Simulated assay, not measured.
Amino acid sequence: MATGSTLARRALGRELNRLREAAKMSQSAAGRVIGVSPQTIGRMEDGQPTKVSDLYVNALCDAYQATDGERVVLLGLAQEVRAAQRSGGGWWRAYADEIPADFDHYLALEEAAKRLTAWKLTVVPGMLQTPEYRRAMIWTETPNKDTEAVEKRIEIATRRQARLEERDFAVDVILSEAVVRDQIGGRSVMANQLRHLAQAGDRPNVSIRVVPFSAPSHLGSFVGSFVLLEFPALPSSKLTEPPVVYVEEYAGDLYLERDSEVGRYRDAVAEISRVALDEQATRRLLLELVEEYTG
Score class of each variant (00 low, 15 high):
S176Q: 02
I184G: 05
H196N: 07
N192T: 05
R274Y: 06
L228S: 04
R181K: 15
L175E: 00
V269S: 02
Q280V: 14
A178N: 14
S214V: 10
D202H: 12
S225N: 04
F226D: 04
S214F: 13
L277V: 03
E155I: 01
R209E: 07
E261H: 14
L219W: 10
A157F: 08
E230Q: 11
A233P: 08
A270L: 01
E165N: 14
G252F: 06
E166Y: 05
A157M: 06
V206M: 12
P204H: 02
V262A: 09
G185R: 10
Y246F: 13
A191E: 03
Y265L: 07
E165Q: 13
L254Y: 14
H196T: 10
V173T: 10
I154W: 02
N192W: 01
Y265M: 06
P212F: 11
A191P: 13
H218K: 15
R266E: 10
S217V: 10
I156C: 07
I184F: 10
V245S: 08
P243A: 12
L229I: 03
R209D: 09
P242D: 09
D182Q: 11
R187P: 11
V244L: 06
R264V: 09
D168M: 12
I174P: 01
A170H: 14
E165Y: 10
S225Y: 06
V227K: 02
V247N: 03
V210R: 00
A251Y: 08
V223Q: 05
I156F: 07
R258K: 15
E165K: 07
F213V: 04
F226I: 04
L197D: 04
F169Y: 12
P216L: 09
V173L: 10
A178Y: 14
P232D: 02
A157Q: 02
V171Q: 06
